[in-house]
């Protein structure tokens, strides 16, 4: 049995009178990939943001390696945060710094690394996500997928014990989703402990060791991907899964597959464009039909 990294007990969070989290408890063990799914407004992101105290819980406790981080002093909180990587939906790269400086800022400031040491490590990580050529570029010169890969590298540079992902692919164009998910899959394969909020059901099914279904500020279903996805469900979970299966996520999967094929040389770029144009025509037709 792997050791427990995060232990969350009876976590509650309210914004004014609005109670967003209504008492959540779970444990995250070293090496686990926990994926949180559920309808919008269900509390997934808030739950994730509580784990590294971007939001201060109203009640309950969060034990990180046995230390209650909610009650910790400011200095301890900063230290604990540096051990937890976080990737945001909108990347939040620092636009005034080069890619290399984005990655090396925290290791130098907090870990006390020399510039040379931090840069060598950053280049290694950039190579791992295929972006070593962008080291001197600025965030505005990168595509969305590249920005998100850099954001992941920026967190990894702190050598975190756990990585938190807050809808990392939701702000991306469909053709860029795959490159980010590939990096995340690679991380999971290498044993990184991860907590992921996402709508990418395929990722959840393929990569997660455990899936949490959050709804109305509570965890209403929990289990292995097989338990969540392969068995028929009643109520909200069944409804939710039925909806997302036929939705844009399927499209994203198809786009990803086509691009992969193009990269591997199975089909040519012009063929891809043809397929995409055809897909668009069908989509418009479908929309027109729905309206009529």
């Amino acid at each position: 049995m792997a050791e427990t990294l995060l232990k969350i007990e009876n976590l509650k969070k309210a914004f004014g009178n609005l109670e967003v989290l209504k008492g959540l408890s779970t444990e995250i063990k070293v090496g686990e990939v926990v994926v949180m799914i559920g309808p919008s407004g269900g509390g997934k992101s808030t739950f994730l943001r509580c784990m590294n105290l971007l939001e201060t819980p109203t009640e309950g406790s969060i034990l990180f390696e046995g230390v209650d981080i909610v009650k910790a002093d400011e200095k301890t909180k900063n230290r604990l945060r540096s051990d937890m990587g976080m990737v945001f939906q909108h990347f939040n790269l620092f636009p005034h710094l080069s890619i290399l400086d984005n990655i090396t800022l925290a290791p130098r400031l907090i870990r006390g690394k020399s510039r040379a040491e931090a840069e060598t490590e950053a280049m290694k990580l950039l190579a791992r996500v295929g972006l070593e050529s962008k080291a001197k570029a600025y965030p505005q010169q990168l595509s969305g997928g590249q920005k998100q890969r850099v954001a992941i590298v920026r967190s990894l540079a702190m050598e975190p014990k756990v990585m938190l992902f807050d809808e990392p692919t939701s702000a991306l164009d469909p053709e860029m989703v795959g490159e980010v998910l590939d990096v995340m899959k690679d991380l999971a394969k290498n044993g990184m402990t991860m907590v992921v909020v996402t709508h990418e059901m395929r990722f959840a099914r393929d990569v997660a060791t455990r899936v949490l279904f959050l709804e109305g500020g509570r965890i209403t279903a929990e289990g292995t991907p097989e338990e969540i996805f392969e068995r028929p469900h009643e109520g909200r979970l069944g409804e939710f899964l039925g909806k997302v299966k036929g939705d844009q996520l399927a499209d994203a999967d198809i786009a990803h597959a086509i691009l992969k094929a193009a990269e591997d040389g199975v089909i040519t770029v012009s063929e891809v464009e043809e397929v995409l144009a055809e897909a668009k025509r069908r989509e418009q037709k479908a929309k027109g039909g729905a309206q009529a």
């Binding site: 590294n52 971007l54 900063n78 230290r79 945060r81 540096s82 051990d83 937890m84 990587g85 976080m86 945001f88 939040n92 790269l93 620092f94 800022l105 925290a106 400031l109 907090i110 920026r154 967190s155 702190m158």
Partner: peptide, 8 residues
């Protein structure tokens, strides 16, 4: 948020 999340 990004700065704080890195531990700054």
């Amino acid at each position: 948020e990004a700065g704080r999340a890195l531990g700054l």
